[in-house]
């Protein structure tokens, strides 16, 4: 039987906000959602892609010419990597077996563990590659602390299965109103909210996170609904990630334009008072 493989678009060794201790964060490629503020746009598609860093580009066109030679149209191809005079072209998304990925992580496990840290699988949406994810989590069992950073956008059975194999969960709650959720996030929040309840009653260590986007989900109405929902699930802690103006930084890399429909210059309002009304402790990161 062929080994299960996954597509990894980045591994960060010293991630300090993805769980307890020093985290090695693995970014799995592909996401079924499409948040308007996504700061990892290169992680949205499920396929590997050739990307070009815009900083320092001489616009010499050698990379695109190579694409034209091979495909007949001006585009980036794998062969473009070698011809860039500044070495700015690279592959985003490498296919690896679970064993390969775990052996990379293993090199750092002593340091990760010594700091009380471990591995965090992020994305994209890591649950979208759940078979690969499960395989990795199983191989890492009892070796280090295993966390996932997820939107929870998946079926109940997949969620339960993955949950049973991880030690810590970072769970995003973005918008409570389903229509708005569909518009801004690109999918329904029904399974997200259902899986959240499963997580909250599972006894697993987890943290709820809200990426706070000005005028989109920092409204009193949405915060009230979120706090109420968390309170119903007996959750008493939340971490707020205020919108980062650097979010658009990587769109050029994949040849896209960042066009949010909200004003990123507005300082989002975390409405701490509302959370506190529901007995929820707020930490702004």
């Amino acid at each position: 039987m062929a080994k299960i493989t996954g597509n990894v678009f980045s591994i960060e060794e010293f991630s300090t906000f993805d769980g307890p201790g020093i985290r090695e964060t693995v970014f799995l490629k592909g996401c079924p959602l499409k948040c308007m503020w996504c700061h990892n746009p290169e992680g949205q598609s499920f396929e590997s892609m050739v990307v070009r860093s815009p900083n320092g580009c001489l616009n010499c066109g050698a990379c695109l010419k190579k694409g034209e030679e091979i495909t007949g149209k001006s585009c980036l191809v794998k062969e473009s990597i070698a011809v860039c005079p500044r070495n700015l072209v690279r592959i985003c998304g490498e296919v690896k077996t679970a064993e390969e990925l775990v052996s990379i992580i293993s090199k750092n496990i002593t340091i990760l563990n010594a700091s009380g840290g471990g591995v965090t699988f992020s994305g994209g949406e890591p649950l979208s590659q759940h078979k690969f994810l499960l395989e990795c989590l199983k191989l890492l069992k009892d070796k280090t602390n295993r966390a996932i950073q997820t939107t929870g956008y998946t079926s109940e059975s997949v969620f339960r299965e993955v949950l049973s194999e991880c030690d810590f969960v970072l769970y995003d709650l973005k918008l409570m109103d389903n229509d708005k959720h569909k518009y801004y996030v690109g999918g329904s929040n029904e399974n997200i909210l259902r899986n959240y309840s499963i997580l909250a009653s599972s006894g697993k260590d987890f943290i709820t996170r809200i990426p706070l986007i000005p005028t989109v989900n920092d409204t009193a109405e949405n915060i009230e609904a979120t706090a109420k929902f968390m309170n119903k699930n007996k959750v008493s802690k939340v971490e707020i990630l205020p919108y980062n103006k650097m979010a658009g930084g990587k769109y050029k890399l994949i040849g896209k334009e960042y066009k949010p429909e909200f004003d990123g210059n507005i300082e989002p309002n975390p409405h701490k008072d509302i959370f506190e009304k529901y007995g929820i402790e707020v930490k702004v990161l």
């Binding site: 010293f14 906000f17 201790g21 340091i111 010594a114 700091s115 840290g117 990161l285």
Partner: peptide, 20 residues
């Protein structure tokens, strides 16, 4: 990375790892 005390602790852990 140093935004909060947690980040500071992690940088400290990195230094400690280097020494060890």
């Amino acid at each position: 990375v140093f935004r909060n005390e947690e980040g500071e602790k992690k940088v400290a852990a990195l230094v400690k790892a280097f020494v060890h």
